[in-house]
Nucleic acid binder design. Structure first.
Length: 763
DNA sequence: GTGCCTGCTCACGGG
DNA sequence: GAGCAGGCAC
């Protein structure tokens, strides 16, 4: 009896085929992750491959985390030597080591799309391009496409001969790359492109990694683009031990340059490829699989295949149409609570709510929170795009290295120091002229033509230098806290005394918590500022720590790829939302086909129970929009659909009776989005006086003594937190400048908080 | 240089 | 609905 006995014939064949190129065409739920992980074990234990020589690439951080876990469980000793990572994090790791050979410093920063946009704005200004006519976003999109295809600015210029707009974009591209380099920064696409450049320019570096990664596996292969394919080809060229796993029906990243030819032409590029098809589904009931199959069958451009299962028939797919998106969200939240609390059929973590766009999470969040149903939103870059978070990160980046102009400029006058836009742009031009960094140029504000600002700027420079010195004896979260205090950033927010400012403070607190999490969980080396910044640059979801907690998962269908849940709610199934308006009106039927594949992915996430819902009317961009039932819903084989549900009207009455906030709840729905601060809004509503009092108490706290007096609670007390709700204080630990309070919250479990930030209030 | 108001634009997905 | 650029008054 071996661990491989549990695999079916095809799975075994894939597992045991270790030498030479291997293409696994794996349908949804056909156990491809099992094959990949077992294959890794087989390589190590039977073939005798050193774990150090294995590379496994996944598409999302979540997938990488899950694969890592499964591999660790199966392999045991030595598994940590295996590289399991996303394309992007693999490239970061390589570039941190060798990018100096391309003339960058190894402590480069990574620009997110907002940073890129800011930079492009500058570039356009410099090139006299009217961004009303030619939008930055459009230019960046074109540049990104060029990078996906590995076109240099030069190549782009050649290709756009005779095309005025194309030529302009090519100019922007060149200028943009120069600016990035001057800032010692890379954007997301550059991570891939520069790694390829490195490999092409430095054969011995390539050789090193070819020797290192003798066995390479790529998951979600259908979503790789040309650049990623080139990268893998380079790495696998020497040993040819490349195993890719993909499913053309689940290709959902065409918008990002995914090139389906990478699958279709694999056998040509890698001769002697062995191709194995996995067609038995182990995940879903027959009816769910039938629903998925009947939808995807409507795609014309696809390889015909037959996914089948030996699983039970299962329940029919439930379909419900509601009057409004409020009703829909409300129903889902109630239904989840009922399933878990009353019927005990499922735990919260068995359940996922999927939707097409991130914006749809707001209503669900609101209702789940109201019913105290624990939930977590996966993905959604919201948190790290918030102004206050970006500000604090910009401070940390500047302290870490002044090279990143975008970061320095972001905070030079935040909070206000009387350094205006005119001075900033003069210094920026001067820096470009002198070929020095913006931060260096700050010392020459006079020469740059802004002599009057020099005094204020010197104060800023000195402050940054002070923080750099402090770094030596402060931990990261202490440094962050110190920055917030000394710059007056927090004080400015506290003085505002608006709901919005309080939300921002809560978000900052969340970031501090994340820093502490990082400090506690970084295993390889010492926690460093650069290390933390690197992590947040690539990971949008640091919250992987509470994995054992029981919560409902909310995410977009894109984010759900590769995952499975016993019970799935698929909401917002309306024409114009899913499939998106853009795909319907583009005139290109293949756009709708990509949406249909996305729908196929959504349906195949469900193992036992699938509820599909839509709303007749929904608030979109400030106005009510009426929609029809999604064409995809109508494509589901009627045999497997139960559309008799009419619980919504009944249910609504019930809600009005038991929900004292329901009138104001509607108003609350229209509050600004804030995945991380919603509870705060409700808390304000309930006890504004308490909340204000706790804000006031915090204001004067700067020294430990003050603070000690200011702590209105002790171990054993029940306290209330604006975000996490109520809980029990289990420990108070004295820290150099603050107290660390451990609280067991009723809803979110144990959290360690800092007294100066956590506005804990005794109840 | 700052703060406030207005009008415009964008509303799909990921690292 | 919300963020942002541009215009304007101070």
């Amino acid at each position: 009896m071996s661990i491989y006995d549990s695999l079916n014939n095809m799975q075994q064949e894939a597992t045991f085929h270790t030498d030479g190129p291997l293409l696994i065409l794996a349908g949804a739920g056909s156990g491809k992750t099992r094959v990949l992980t077992h294959r890794i074990v087989y390589l190590i234990e039977e073939v005798g491959v050193n774990p150090y020589n294995i590379l496994a690439i996944t598409f999302t951080n979540k997938a990488a985390g899950e694969m890592r876990e499964r591999v660790d469980q199966l392999v045991g000793f030595g598994s940590e030597a295996i590289w399991v990572s996303t394309f992007h994090s693999m490239c970061v790791r390589i570039l941190r080591r060798y990018i100096d050979r391309l003339g960058y410093e190894t402590n480069f920063t990574i620009y997110d799309s907002d940073d890129s946009k800011t930079l492009m704005k500058d570039v356009c200004k410099r090139l006299n391009i009217d961004t009303k006519m030619l939008r930055e976003k459009f230019i960046l999109g074109e540049i990104s496409r060029a990078k996906d295809e590995l076109w240099s600015p030069e190549k782009m210029r050649e290709r756009s001969a005779g095309d005025f707009q194309g030529a302009q974009i090519a100019r922007c591209y060149r200028e943009y790359q120069e600016e990035l380099k001057r800032n010692n920064a890379l954007d997301f696409d550059d991570l891939i492109v520069k790694t390829i450049e490195l490999f092409q320019k430095e054969p011995e570096v390539l050789n090193y990694y070819q020797e290192r990664f003798q066995y390479i596996m790529v998951d979600e292969y259908q979503d790789t683009n040309t650049a990623q394919f080139e990268l893998i080809s380079l790495l696998a060229k020497k040993y040819q031990n490349l195993c890719v796993v993909g499913d053309d029906d689940q290709s959902i990243y065409k918008f990002r340059g995914a090139n389906i030819k990478n699958i279709l032409n694999f056998e040509q590029v890698f001769p002697n490829t062995r191709t194995i098809k996995l067609e038995q589904n182990y995940r879903s009931t027959k009816r769910i699989l039938q629903a998925a199959n009947s939808v995807i069958a409507n795609n014309v451009g696809r390889k015909d295949k037959a996914l089948w299962t030996e699983n039970d028939e299962g329940d029919k797919v439930r379909f419900l149409q509601f009057d409004s998106a409020y009703d829909e969200a409300d129903y889902i939240a109630h239904n989840i609570k009922e399933e878990v609390m009353d019927q005990g059929n499922y735990t919260y973590s068995d359940i996922a709510c999927l939707y097409r766009t991130n914006a749809q999470s707001r209503l669900l969040e609101e209702r789940l929170m109201f019913l105290s149903v624990p939930y977590k939103i996966v993905g959604g870059v919201n948190f790290y795009q918030r102004k206050e978070i970006k500000d604090l990160l910009a401070y940390l980046k500047t302290v870490d290295s002044g090279n990143d102009e975008i970061a320095v400029r972001r905070i030079l006058n935040v909070p206000r120091r009387g350094i205006g836009a005119t001075s900033i742009s003069k210094i920026s031009d001067y820096a470009a002229q002198q070929r020095i960094t913006f931060f260096e140029a700050l010392s020459f504000a006079g020469d740059a033509g802004a002599p009057r600002a020099q005094g204020k700027i010197d104060g800023f420079i000195e402050m940054i230098h002070d923080f750099r010195k402090e770094q030596e004896f402060l931990s990261l979260h202490e440094l962050a806290t110190d920055i917030l205090e000394k710059t007056g950033y927090l004080a400015a927010l506290r003085d505002e005394k608006t709901d919005e400012a309080r939300d921002r403070i809560a978000n900052i607190e969340e970031l501090i918590n994340k820093i502490v999490d990082y400090e506690n969980n970084v295993d390889e080396e010492e926690p460093t500022l650069s290390g933390f910044l690197e992590e947040v640059a690539l990971i949008s979801d640091l919250d992987r720590l509470n994995e054992e907690d029981d919560y409902v998962t909310l995410m977009t269908v894109h984010a759900a790829k590769g995952l499975e849940f016993p019970q799935v709610y698929l909401s917002g199934m309306e024409d114009g939302l899913f499939p998106s308006y853009m795909s319907i009106t583009s005139g290109d039927e293949s756009d709708v086909e990509e949406e249909r594949r996305l729908c196929y992915v959504a349906i195949t996430r469900a193992m036992e129970s699938l509820t599909v819902s839509c709303a007749k009317s929904r608030m979109v961009n400030g106005e009510w929009r009426n929609s029809n039932i999604s064409r995809f819903v109508l494509e589901i084989d009627p045999e497997v659909v139960d559309a008799s549900g009419r619980g919504m009207a009944l249910h609504r009455r019930q809600v009005l009776e038991e929900d004292p906030l329901s009138s104001s709840a509607k108003a609350a729905f229209s509050r600004k989005p804030g995945n991380y601060t919603k509870q705060a809004s409700f808390e304000h509503r309930e006890k504004p006086a308490d909340f204000l009092a706790s804000m006031g108490v915090q204001k004067g706290m700067s020294s430990v003594n003050n603070l000690e007096e200011g702590l209105s609670y002790q171990v054993g007390d029940r306290v209330k937190h604006i975000k996490f709700g109520q809980g029990l204080v289990t420990e108070i630990k004295k820290m150099p400048k603050d107290y660390q309070v451990t609280v067991e919250f009723d809803q979110v479990g144990v959290r360690k908080l800092f007294a100066a930030f956590a506005k804990l209030k005794k109840i």
